[in-house]
């Protein structure tokens, strides 16, 4: 029933994700699939299905648990229902602005602990890929902290993100991705948060006036596999796959940063008011939001969350010295 090219592979995996084929994550995944194919002499075939063809993210993650698909690359923000511990990544300004310092966190004890937390949830998490930072847009001014008061922002379904906005006096509204463009146009919500390239691809600049490049939320991709499938692989193939993801990661990050730069140009040209928040403003926003977002996180993640936060704060301190 499979095409002859795929019949040769001993281990084949369907990997689903929700980004469009033109976006950096998909390009990166294609590269990984190609490297893995070469290095296993065609024995491991990773088939990548973009743009939610295999279902929405909840369905893809669940499918990875069931083994109906073998893998998914999911934004951490969509994984809280499966593993409350991972929602630590939803806390605003968790990562420093500096990209190299952020990578240290990802690779260090903190990042490892996040990956480990999936093993008791029927998933194998092998690595974290960076996928840009969220910024704020709104039809109302976002000149300073006070300006957020009373505004309505669309957020993904997450308690922590709701608290992030509550902390600055704004309210969070949950709206389906497909309805967001129209909701911004008619004014059901004033603003939204997304990485710059999403803002450009979804053409939110057509229906939004102000952009502040706050980079307040890290969009972290968790690479997940079905444990049964993963264990069926010989150890050296597991290594080849994990190594391929690590090798391609810098390129994905470069492409993502480049895509954000291009997006920023597009957004500027489209006539949106653009302001890049300086480090001081980011500190102010972070200070205002961190405590309540962290409290919301700990309420859900409990002792496991306490441990992760402690690890995080230790890692940050180490980096500071």
């Amino acid at each position: 029933q499979q095409a002859p090219a795929q019949a040769k592979a001993k281990f084949s995996a369907r990997i689903g994700h929700l980004e469009a084929p033109t976006q950096p994550r998909h390009q990166g995944l294609l590269k990984v699939a190609q490297l893995v194919k070469e290095r296993t002499k065609g024995e491991v075939d990773l088939q990548i299905f973009p743009s939610s063809q295999l279902g929405n993210q909840r369905v893809m993650t669940e499918g990875t648990q069931f083994g109906t698909i073998q893998g998914t690359v999911s934004p951490a923000a969509f994984l809280g229902g499966f593993d409350p511990a991972v929602s630590v990544l939803d806390i605003p300004y968790l990562y420093p602005t500096n990209r190299a310092a952020s990578q240290k966190l990802r690779e260090g004890p903190f990042g490892k602990a996040i990956l480990d937390s999936f093993s008791s949830r029927g998933l194998v998490a092998i690595t974290i890929w960076p996928n840009g930072r969220k910024s704020m847009t709104s039809n109302k001014p976002l000149a300073n902290l006070d300006a957020y008061k009373g505004q309505k922002f669309r957020v993904m379904d997450s308690k922590i993100l709701q608290e992030q906005f509550a902390a600055v006096g704004a309210s969070a509204v949950s709206i389906a991705f497909g309805e967001l463009y129209t909701a911004l146009q008619t004014g059901v919500v004033d603003g939204q948060e997304n990485p710059l390239d999403t803002i450009a691809t979804m053409k939110y600049f057509e229906v939004q006036k102000n952009l502040v490049v706050t980079e307040h939320g890290a969009m972290e991709d968790i690479v997940l596999f079905n444990p049964g499938w993963w264990k069926s692989l010989p150890a050296n193939y597991q290594q080849i796959i994990a190594k391929a993801f690590d090798e391609v990661r810098p390129e994905v990050e470069r492409n993502k940063e480049a895509a954000q730069q291009t997006a920023l140009e597009t957004i500027r040209k489209a006539g949106m008011q653009v302001r890049v928040a300086d480090e001081a403003e980011r500190q102010r926003l972070g200070k205002a939001m961190y405590a309540r977002a962290k409290a919301a996180y700990l309420e859900r993640a409990g002792a496991e969350g306490q441990k992760l936060v402690a690890l995080y704060e230790a890692d940050i301190k180490k980096a500071g010295n």
Partner: peptide, 20 residues
Amino acid sequence: DISVFVYNSGQVSPTLNLSV
């Protein structure tokens, strides 16, 4: 089968925190 599976996996809904 699927109900038992999601119950055991501990998956909860993002806002209500209710088992799937």
